[in-house]
Design a protein around this nucleic acid. Structure first.
Lengths: 340, 340
DNA sequence: GATGTGTATCGAAACGATTCGAAGGCTTGA
DNA sequence: TCAAGCCTTCGAATCGTTTCGATACACATC
């Protein structure tokens, strides 16, 4: 039922050689206009699609791009994935998506795919990578790290990346809350055992802002929670029950912020009347929450776009790795207020 | 850097024939235990991974599954996609994801991929398909339609599907609001020019409930809006400005419901005090909205799971197509109240 | 010893593309 | 007329697998 035509059939029907058909389809080498037209018309008539397995086998390279992502359903990532797919598709390449479960070695998983499928390139999205330069080099195909932190100190010349400055962004959010007069500001993020995660980097920014304003850092104000509303809710509940006089919450993601807001509101407190809240990411749901949540917004779509651009530049032969750091933006919508 | 080993090398190093290595790797045919052990140890030692392009070329079939989806970033789909990926991955197959843009012929796009990549199977997710039985048959590989409505009257024996009963579900939601005493219930959904979309099917359920309770259907209470908060917000604003005495809103998705809730709340009205709201899908964000939104919840994860199961059954040779219709559930959380 | 049966293995052919060296057919100039 | 040079085109070899018919050996049977 599916494709029973191969290049040999097309060649025979067109009355030309096999290689001529190949050259027409790949726009390589010279082919006379009449021959080209003839071949193309036959291709169209029989709806012929070249078999990419054969093509990839011969070229020892496929045109498939893989996206290795931690947390497909995270709304911030979902948007980025959408854009990655769009951009990759636009360039005529199929996209393979693989979810990286906790505890799985991302590079090893990618290696397997690369060798199996002769991948064209890989985008890694989200998470913290505990890999050495050699391990990255082993990949053997172009790749880009998007919104990823690395534990080992890897030479920046060894990889390309797209990110925001997490320390600076968290600093910005915390400073904002401090500037509104808040002193008891709690911080909600995920702190796994590893160092240099997104959470720990944002914690650095949080601490830095406190320090600069002479506010003592209190670990009791920091809650460990995963990037989802249910965890934000539970974490905020825990915090509120401590009765520490918290007047502001800074969450490392909007999903957490939404859960935390729910905890605050359902405790009978008001936002921003009693508690101010600032989230992180800039997802649509935060804007439509009531009250609309302030947030540190990341330009996810552009980040995805640039990731694909860099990847294809590398594929095209660009040898210099690039590191694009986007600017995050403090979006004020009214979930924070001045206190005296 | 990448894989420079091929099966011939492994054969030579192991001191066996090429086909023996192949048989070991595929668990096909008989191989003595000692030979098997020897080959496996060499494979492991050299970290050999078979080239799937070559394998697929020879078998004229790859192990890749494709997911054709409309609206990757829709949170309800995002969750399903996550589960599809998990299940497909669990079965050792790579997953290719292609987003179907508006106006693109889904089947044609899938055909292209199938012929290029010799796909193993395809899952179609979301949207309304305007295809005939012949077009589906042309695919030539197993496939499942998940949460998809079809415009043409296709023989159920010609495809497999996973869905909920949209008419019944909308009927359930509307009846619930009516039972609470509401009469002016508006309905927000997407109504493209085509018939038999998800939106139009849910509209049927809405109408049926009204009719059964002797409430006249008023088209002015139905607003066309896409499945995202911003559109729900705008649609609800439009409705409120009509001053039709609306006391309840039924939205065809939670994303719409969230936008609509925002419109209600930011107009100074209360939920459920002034307006009751029921959404659709059962996404996490609706639960953490304040107030938590009532909704018709779809078992997305199970639907995704079953879709993959059916697909692999078909791949395994099952010839009978299956149609699994899941039960939706009315989840009451407090965004609706009784009126008198 | 010839034949049969089974087990374990081998290697050549094939899958459908790309590519490169070779060659056919023209024109041009000597 | 012939050689040179150019433009097209051709087809064999190749990529790394799978698979099937063939083979080799051991052992039993008659």
């Amino acid at each position: 039922m599916a494709n029973e035509m191969n290049i040999k059939d097309i060649a025979k029907i067109s009355g030309v050689g096999i290689s001529t058909v190949s050259r027409v389809l790949n726009n390589s080498g010279v082919v006379s206009d009449t021959t080209r037209a003839k071949v193309l018309s036959v291709v169209k008539q029989y709806n012929y699609v070249p078999n990419s397995n054969a093509r990839n086998l011969k070229k020892t390279q496929s045109n498939t791009i893989a996206l290795m992502v931690k947390g497909i359903s995270n709304p911030f990532f979902a948007n980025m994935i959408k854009e990655v797919e769009r951009q990759v598709h636009l360039r005529g390449c199929p996209l393979m998506i693989q979810q990286v479960e906790d505890g799985v070695d991302e590079i090893a998983a990618a290696m397997q795919l690369i060798r199996e499928k002769n991948l064209y390139g890989v985008i890694f999205m989200g998470g913290t990578y505990d890999h050495s330069e050699e391990e990255f080099n082993q990949l053997g195909v172009p790749f880009v790290l998007t919104t990823i932190t690395t534990m080992k100190d890897v030479d920046p010349a060894a990889f390309s990346s797209v990110s925001i400055d997490d320390v600076q962004s968290a600093y910005k959010a915390t400073s904002y809350l401090i500037s509104l007069g808040h002193r008891n500001i709690c911080f909600l993020a995920r702190f796994p055992f590893m160092a240099n995660t997104i959470g720990s980097r944002r914690l650095l920014g949080y601490k830095k802002a406190l320090e600069e304003h002479g506010i003592e850092y209190d670990p009791a104000l920091v809650e460990d929670c995963e990037y989802a509303p249910s965890f934000g809710f539970a974490a905020a509940k825990r915090l509120l029950s401590k009765n520490m006089g918290v007047t502001a919450m800074f969450a490392a993601s909007d999903a957490i912020a939404i859960g935390a807001a729910k905890a605050v509101l359902s405790s009978g407190l008001s936002i921003p009347g009693d508690v101010s809240i600032v989230g992180f990411d800039g997802i649509e749901m935060a804007e439509y929450y009531h009250p609309s949540l302030d947030t540190i917004s990341q330009p996810g779509v552009e980040m995805a776009h640039v990731s694909v651009e860099i990847l294809f530049d590398l594929i095209a032969g660009e040898t210099a790795n690039r590191h694009v750091v986007f600017e995050s933006m403090l979006v004020k919508r009214g979930s924070s207020r001045k206190v005296t």
